[in-house]
Design a protein around this nucleic acid. Structure first.
Lengths: 348, 348
DNA sequence: AAACACATTTGGAACGTTCCAAATCGGCTA
DNA sequence: TAGCCGATTTGGAACGTTCCAAATGTGTTT
């Protein structure tokens, strides 16, 4: 077989810097410096070393390096729910930025399970992760974060605030988001607007509900209790929410949804009842996931641009790694109203 | 602060097995064995060692262990497109099964970029990944796989076959899938059926198209060339596909879509034109992603149950790790037709 | 009492890096 | 010539595990 550089026979020990050192007649210290791109080594020597390394088919051994350096280039990333495209897109952004910066992503999925979350965090600690990015599972206790803090490993909380403000955090301005969404519907003439989400569903729910309430008040509209519809934040929840909304005595003409997947459920249920969102009933989502541009009908939503939020979040952690002692960092993405066809002027 | 087991002052070296050994007055070999759960050590001794370990706040150091063992518990997982929920759900299944088996997932996203793919694979090699799971980027060359094989790291190809049959592979029976989908439409009375996908879009496209063609033939139906509609396998592609389909002289009454997101695009476009999928035009997807149950209308699709496929795939790699020399493993998930509202009897 | 089997424990040499302190090498200056 | 300086290079002790070979302890059998 021609053209093969280095097919060493299978059982053989793979080459180490010591082998390179021998081959290039330098010390292993020199080789190490070359591999780290140190300017101390003469260019000529460096070139020779690199040549030998290539010829031997050398592979850098990070376990060894990490052991000695007492550090790694791995970032542990814990995601609560990858089946929600919002988090999938967020993860894409996170990973992209981390990779650019030379870090590698140790990913774990909790499926909102607290036990699993504890387990994977502990595991990432064993692997000596340089930092952690945590999209906390629902109901994560602040105590867990205190514990992680004791680990002395930088952690960034994403999306769902947990614990006090002493942790680095990246998320979006939830209240401003639903505030804008509600104003949008009000401006289209809607006066009876429902809010679909899990009542008591944590701080994110609370903020989004508050933005809704504030906008209603500002618009001089009242909120009937029954418009705060209590459903799980899922597609099924969205369907149930619409069913409930349409059955109300004081029937709303539109709904702000806790997030996009709830909104998708809502669109589905409306369709099933022969109603067209945007004409017969208005629906606004929250998140700005890609599917929203091509749902039926395309979804009016509050976009936080999840991939970009992921990148910003990763950047925040990178900054923290560079300066472990600086005061808590915080990034609140300003969400943007994207008007599509699922919202429309109310029929008069 | 009461209740804190071990808040050693920040600068201090974290404890090692040697420290535990001292504390429990045994040798570090003993400690090592205890931590590995070896049955060689007397239960009583083991308990004492574990106690001391806890008291010291000991954390297992995997870099050190991996260095010595010349192996790791990390599985490198490379995903081409996480923004497609199919792959996100697949990843969930993969990670779940790997975690159960005590492995940790080193995740990288390529966004279908070949350069990125090469880079992340090389990086995973440096990290001494015990195995690799690859959802290859579009147009991945078999040469890359040969190269990985030379690395002596077990690799499992997922979803898109690349290279010869000598690699472990997990995917689904694409031809059987579209065969069933097409029969379904035919049984509903459809005679003119379009196929929406990227012509020349690799082996998966080829197989799905073939299943479609075979079913049409079996049903005694002919396929007009113009029904093979060439679009990118995206939501936008699905919209474009429907636009093209509806403009044809010999206008189809239904379409088999390359995958679910194409189908979603199709639903969106139909809606925008005031057509109701399932009544005015039938749409069938492929993949069985969760959204399909709550799209508007809910999507008839060929489900491969992506999360389960992920679990099976991970299991395949685990089997391979246990027996590196066994002949190539292969898993073809049998897809299942799920009939929902997006397909219906053709209007006569 | 010696010899043996078995259960338990241990010393210490790896694993492949990094990085400090020190050595070496060429000029150059005094 | 001796001394010095900056640029390069090097020896070797870590880093925290694992695991082999050997040692020790405890009965049991001869």
């Amino acid at each position: 077989m021609p053209g093969q550089t280095s097919d060493r026979s299978p059982g053989l020990r793979s080459p180490t810097i010591t082998d390179i050192a021998k081959g290039a007649s330098v010390s292993k210290s020199t080789v190490s410096l070359v591999l780290q791109g140190s300017p101390l080594i003469k260019a000529e020597t460096a070139a020779r070393v690199r040549e030998v390394a290539d010829a031997l088919g050398y592979v850098y051994n990070r376990s060894a390096a990490d052991l000695r350096r007492r550090a790694s280039n791995m970032i542990g990333t814990v995601i609560n729910d990858l089946t929600n495209p919002f988090f999938a897109e967020l993860l894409v952004g996170l990973e992209r930025r981390l990779a650019e910066a030379g870090y590698v992503t140790l990913m774990a999925h909790t499926g909102e399970d607290l036990r699993t979350q504890e387990r994977v965090l502990a595991s990432m600690r064993e692997y000596h992760a340089a930092g952690l990015i945590l999209c906390p599972a629902f109901d994560t206790s602040p105590a867990l974060l205190q514990q992680i803090r004791a680990w002395q490993i930088p952690v960034l909380i994403v999306v769902r605030p947990v614990g006090d403000a002493s942790f680095d955090f990246a998320g979006s301005d939830n209240e401003a988001g639903t505030f804008a969404a509600t104003n949008h519907l009000a401006e289209l003439g809607h006066q009876r607007i429902a809010f679909l989400g899990r009542v008591g569903g944590g701080p994110v729910y609370e903020l989004r509900r508050r933005g809704f309430a504030r906008a209603m008040r500002d618009q001089g509209l009242t909120i009937e209790d029954e418009w705060l519809i209590d459903i799980p934040p899922t597609r099924e929840g969205g369907r149930a929410g619409i069913r409930q909304a349409l059955a109300l005595r004081s029937r709303p003409t539109g709904a702000i949804c806790y997030n996009d997947i709830v909104a998708f459920g809502a669109l589905s249920e409306l369709g099933e009842r022969g109603l067209r969102a945007g004409r017969d009933f208005s629906v606004v989502g929250f998140d700005g996931i890609a599917d929203g541009a091509h749902s039926n009908p395309p979804l009016t939503t509050i976009s936080v641009d999840p991939a970009r939020l992921g990148e910003s979040a990763a950047q925040l952690l990178l900054t923290r790694l560079r300066d472990p002692a600086s005061p808590p960092l915080r990034h609140l993405a300003q969400p943007r109203l994207i008007i599509r066809q699922s919202s429309g002027r109310v029929e008069t």
